[in-house]
Amino acid sequence: MIYALCIVLFLLGLYGVLVKKNLIKIIISLAMMNNAINLFFILLAYRKNGVVPILSFLQPNANLYETAVDPLPQALVLTSVVIGLGVTALMVALAIRLYYVYGTFDITKMRKLRG
């Protein structure tokens, strides 16, 4: 059920990318698709009543392999989140540049080639 909601979020992002004609909306939709995929990985890694995979004074000598959630998807998604920020920043830079050239965020008006 939770997986389905996650996919619904992804599909809403896909809908925005396919239907919207405003660059800012498209960028937000792409960021949401990225978020939905990240969330999906972390949902797959969750263990019921799982503890954080950190050894601390709160859980000394913890048998992490029996109680902790999966640390590997967390490490991979950590990378993915930061790369998502880089992608968003690059897309926004391109959008600002296009606005500077064309004076609009509307992609249907960006047809003529201009220097």
């Binding site: 800012i24 959630v69 989140v81 930061v82 920020l85």
Partner: peptide
């Protein structure tokens, strides 16, 4: 949600990324 799923490192990074991307998008 990341915090609830026992991923505190990820929650911290996500908050930082959310703030930065919000600033970038508002700038745009």
């Amino acid at each position: 949600i990341f915090l609830l799923l026992s991923a505190p490192d990820l929650a911290i990074v996500q908050i930082a990324v959310a703030v930065i991307s919000l600033v970038i998008m508002i700038r745009a």
